[in-house]
Structures are given as structure tokens and as C-alpha cells.
Design a protein around this nucleic acid. Structure first.
Lengths: 336, 336
DNA sequence: AAATAGAGCGGAAACGTTTGCGATTTCCAG
DNA sequence: CTGGAAATCGCAAACGTTTCCGCTCTATTT
């Protein structure tokens, strides 16, 4: 349990421990012969540098706090995967925190992360209130947001162009011959405001009348989509497609359609948003809009690293392009 | 960027910084009046204790390293969620590391975690070789494994009773009237050895002949199940059920069955293992064996805490009960 | 041959805490 | 009023590094 320190190998090597430190750090202020001798001795003795002691003096921990509403969520766990990989590749480690559903916990973990002296924070906000919830801390440590949850806020973030996503999605449906397209969504989040906008903008351009339906996102949003669709399917169906603002939501629609014996894409086309991994599953094969999760994650850590290492001030809004993932829930009406 | 230290508030309060430290730590060696005054002053000045400095002297970081093959995996991200929640509830934070597919990276991250002075390590091994891969480090820091990947190894772990899982699964199929049950799996892992055993044991007891099929787990194991099933479905079908040793594997079977126009559960029953969240999706509704992920996670951190805080030596093998999750991929043959 | 530059190394301070020990004060009993 | 115990509090060491500063010694230049 007792680990070997710099002092130990210094004594063994017959040099001062400053010299050992220099040997390991690749300083040029040391003879190449002694360096090699010390390095060899180090791994013979099993020495590994104590990061917390180093952090004391360098004022840098090499730690990045990653706070997500909950890591058991396909979207966030994918993001976390790429973020951790990228961060570690640059000498950083990830401290993971679930912020849960309430703002209090989110604030608590951010405060905790500060206490832990993380070099920076990567956060996917749990609500549009997140910004002012943690505003007191974001100027104490480099922070970048994942998702465009704050319109016009002086904060760095990286996100997809949500508006463009729904725009190309409804345009795709239009090209397939659909003229009556429902939209299931909400505006509780800036992200979702943008998505709604893109849908409406596309409708305007294409001469369609937007039909926006408010879908609850309480608990699992799959039940939100399910319940809304269930109500609608009880009435006559005067539309040929549904655009669900979220894959989970679309999954709920799928379930309701199965219950009501409405064939997808036979009688009804369906498109989602996010491209979570479940959408590619057999029997699901949901056509959707992809959020480039890998790009989002690596660009976010790059941005954070720039702030940390170069002390870059100001803020950047990095907008990534969404992509249409064609699978099998949209029917081409022109073929009929 | 410059944070306030103990010394700062000590100066402001007109006391030594030892007194401030005692006020915050809830020591009894301090007057209750001065304590309150200091505590009030502390949050007026926005003081938060610096964990890395504290760690220097206490020799404890309050950090737990969590190493998983890859966090973007439903099973592991659920585990991670509960582990983080539970750990934080007890004053620990999680350092997340993906160990990837190769042993070298696994060893690297464990070494890194040691350098970081974590108090303990929670690891879901990537292969049966993990044990000796990191053996050199497991005696330097409290470690508990998630999954029973090491039979008879002197290491603590918590896992489901895998053997019992497949046992109750095949027994369930038997009770439904199935007499010819295929098993898709491998023995590349102790976990999977146990699963295979449970299936075979049940067959013996029930007078069935076990039919074990080797299914590749290369890359996404869903393609492994798909390819094996595809081959089998080309030949005459002289069985009524398939037990897939993994939900992902079962999903591959599902896909192959759809391709071959074999109805599930009409012509063929299917059961998986793990109860990952995708199995509950509409159109999937896979009957499966549940791994109690929450229990596994909290028991693992409890076990780790015991080792850390009480210095408990020795090792424990904590085996949890699997549960049968009945959904809609198994047909009751007695009804027909 | 003397002066100088620079390479190689050691000494020591500093980072922000916690904590054992000693000093001072308070308080109550005798 | 006094003695001593108990309650408060300050001093200073220690944790393991990094890095600035300065010293010594060799090698190069004039």
C-alpha cells in the first residue's frame, strides 16, 4: 500500500529529487546518461508520479468534469464514450457526474467539481435554466456546453444545427410526396425550439400548413409519444407522415401505431431525431436525423482544451451539420 | 480564476487557519460561536475546500476509478449510472475510463488510475485475461470486479448467478412445452461458461439433449447472432426455441428470423439474457433474463467502500439472483 | 592561459490542507 | 481565592511534487 516516491528513487540513485523530477519530465537541464539511468531505476522500483502532489504545485489537475443528466441514456453515453477517449488522448481524465432531473443536484455537482479543482467542465444541460443555474461557476472554470441550449448566451457550446435537421427531414418527406406532415414536439428547450422552427420554416417554403402537436416529455419520452399518438389514432387520419422531434418519441408513435394496426410505413410514415443506437435495431429501422455524436464530443473537448491550455477567452458557438439517415419508416408515395 | 483559500478566510476572521479547518470539519475542538462565525464567513467569501490539497495530507482522494470496456453500451452505462449515484451519496466521485477492446489499454488505464491516487477501482473486465493483466495493481488498491469473470480467483466481485439464469430460462421454455431448445453462445468468458453450464444442467435434468451452437462475438454481437441464425434458418428447422446467451445476440436472431419470414414467437420462441433497455422496445418485446444492474452497482460500491474505509482484507463473491422477464417472444405450446 | 559561457545538478520554497502538540484561557469545585 | 481540569485555539510539520535560483565544473573563445 505504501508507494514509492521521488525521494525514494533519488536516494537510490544518489541524486537530489529535483534531478529525478527533471529526468521524468523530459527537461533539457539534465545529462542524457543520468536521465536514462534514472528512468530505468524508476520502473525497476515501480515509481509512478503522484498526480495529486503534482497538481498542488502546477495548479492543474488534468481533470475534466463531465456532467450529464443521466449517463444511462444512449445519446449521452455515446457522447461520454467519445469525450473520454478524446480527453484521455490529450492527457485528461474524466470525472463523471449525473445531474439528475433537478437543478439543485446539477448545481451541487458543479460546485463539487470546482472543489475537485477540475481544469474544465463539459456539461449537457438538463434544462434551459441550467445556464443561470450554474452561471456563478462558469466564470471560475472553463466550461463548454453540449447542445445549443442557450440562445444568445455568452457561453461556448457545440451542437447540431437542430433547425436544419428538421428542415431537411420535412423536405425529405415532401420529396417523397407527403403533403400533410404532423410534428410531435415541444418548445421547453432551446434545442426543441430550433427543431420546431426548422419544421415550420420548411412547411412555409413548401407551401404546407404546419401542424404542431404538443407532446409531453414527462418521464420516458417514449410514453409521451405513445399517448399523443394513441389519442390521434382514435380520430380519422388525415395526414401521411409524422415527424417526431426525438427518436424516443418516435418509438412511442411506433408502439401506438402497432396497437392501432396502422402500418408503418404502409399507411403512415415516421421520422425521428437523434439517431440513437436503438433506431438501427431490427424491426425498428427508424428513419431519423443524425446528431454527429463523435464530432460533437471531440470538438467539445478540443474547445475546452483550447480554453484551458491557451486561456482563450470569449465564446464560440460551434454548429455541426445533421445528416438524414434513411431507413425504412418512410414511404415513397410517388411509387404508388 | 484565483480562488480563496483557508488562509484568506483565516485572515478575514482573525484566527489561524487551523481554526478555520476545524470549523469546517466539524471538530469538537472549537467554540460553537467562532465556528458559526467562520462558517458564515466562508460562504460569504465563497470558500470551498481544495480537495487536492486535502488529499495530500489525508492520503485519501475520495475518488473511485470506474473502468469499463466501453461506456456506450446499455449494460455498462446503466451500471455506471447507479454506481455514480451511489458513490456520490457516500462522498466519492467517479473517474471514468474506457478500457477498449485490448488488454494493453486496460492495463494503461488502471496504471493511470493508480497514479491518480484513486481510493479504489471498480472494473468490469473485458476478457478472462483481465485478472492477470492487472494483477500487479490489484494488491496496491482495493478493487472489485463487476461480473464473475474469474472463477476461483482471490478477487472480490459481484455478479448475477449466470448459471441459474440460463437454468430458469430453459426451464421456463420447457414448461411452455418446448423440447428442442438451441443455445447460442460461447465459452470465451467465465460468465459465458456459467451460462452454458446452466443451460446444459437444465437440459440434463429435464431429459433434453443440449444443442450448443458457437456464436461469434466479434464486433457487435448482434451480427454474430444474425449470421449464425441465418445459416441455421437455411436448413430445416427441427427445434422450437432458441436461447441466446446475450440480448444483443438475440436481437441478431430476431433480424435473421424476420429475413427468413420465420415468425417469432409463432414458429420459433426466443429468449435472451441481460435485459438491456432495448429489449423492452415496441416490436422487440424480448423475453429475457434480467441482470439486476442497480443492485449489482450499489453492492459493488458498498463492497469497495468497506475495503477502503475499514481496510477489509480477503475477498467476497457476491452472487445476485437473476429474474425471468416474460415478454412476448416465447410461445406457450400447450395452448395449441 | 585567462575569461566566459553554458551544461548539469542540488537546495529550497511553494502549493493548500490536516492534525498532533503545546499554550492559553475559562470555569468550577474545594 | 486558588488549583487544576477542560475547553479553545495557534504553531508548525507534513504530504510529494515542480521549478526558480545558484553553484560547480567542463569546454570553448580570445
Amino acid at each position: 500500500m505504501k508507494s514509492v516516491t521521488l525521494k525514494d528513487v533519488a536516494k537510490a540513485a544518489g541524486v537530489s529529487y529535483a534531478t529525478v523530477s527533471r529526468a521524468l519530465s523530459g527537461s533539457h537541464q539534465i545529462g542524457s546518461d543520468t536521465r536514462e539511468r534514472i528512468i530505468k531505476l524508476c520502473d525497476e522500483m515501480g515509481y509512478t508520479t503522484n498526480y495529486v502532489a503534482r497538481s498542488m504545485v502546477t495548479k492543474r489537475t488534468g481533470l475534466i468534469g463531465l456532467v450529464v443528466p443521466s449517463i444511462d441514456n444512449q445519446f449521452m453515453s455515446e457522447l461520454a464514450y467519445y469525450a473520454e477517449m478524446s480527453a484521455r488522448g490529450h492527457g485528461y481524465n474524466i470525472m463523471l457526474c449525473n445531474s439528475g432531473p433537478d437543478l439543485k443536484q446539477e448545481k451541487t455537482v458543479v460546485k463539487l467539481l470546482l472543489s475537485r479543482q477540475v481544469d474544465g467542465i463539459l456539461i449537457v444541460p438538463q434544462s434551459p435554466k441550467t445556464y443561470e443555474n450554474i452561471r456563478a461557476y462558469t466564470d471560475q472554470v472553463p466550461t463548454v456546453f453540449l447542445s445549443e441550449n442557450l440562445r444568445d448566451q455568452p457561453q461556448s457550446y457545440v451542437a447540431v444545427d437542430n433547425s436544419r435537421g428538421t428542415y431537411i427531414g420535412t423536405k425529405y418527406l415532401y420529396e417523397l410526396g407527403h403533403r400533410d406532415i404532423l410534428y410531435f414536439g415541444r418548445r421547453h428547450t432551446t434545442t426543441h425550439q430550433f427543431r420546431a422552427e426548422g419544421y415550420i420554416r420548411a412547411c412555409r417554403e413548401l407551401g404546407l400548413t404546419p401542424r404542431f402537436f404538443n407532446s409531453e416529455f414527462t418521464r420516458s419520452s417514449i410514453t409521451g409519444g405513445y399517448q399523443l399518438a394513441k389519442e390521434l389514432f382514435a380520430k380519422p387520419i388525415d395526414y401521411s407522415a409524422i415527424f417526431a422531434s426525438t427518436d424516443s418519441n418516435a418509438l412511442g408513435v411506433l408502439k401506438a401505431a402497432d396497437d392501432a394496426h396502422i402500418s408503418i410505413p404502409g399507411q403512415l410514415s415516421l421520422i425521428g431525431f437523434d439517431n440513437i443506437s436503438s433506431t438501427a435495431l431490427p424491426r425498428i429501422e427508424l428513419t431519423t436525423i443524425e446528431q454527429p455524436k463523435k464530432d460533437m464530443a471531440v470538438q467539445a473537448v478540443d474547445m475546452l482544451r483550447d480554453k484551458i491550455e491557451n486561456g482563450t477567452q470569449g465564446y464560440i458557438h460551434q454548429i455541426l451539420m445533421p445528416a438524414l439517415i434513411k431507413r425504412s419508416t418512410c414511404r415513397d408515395l410517388r411509387e404508388a
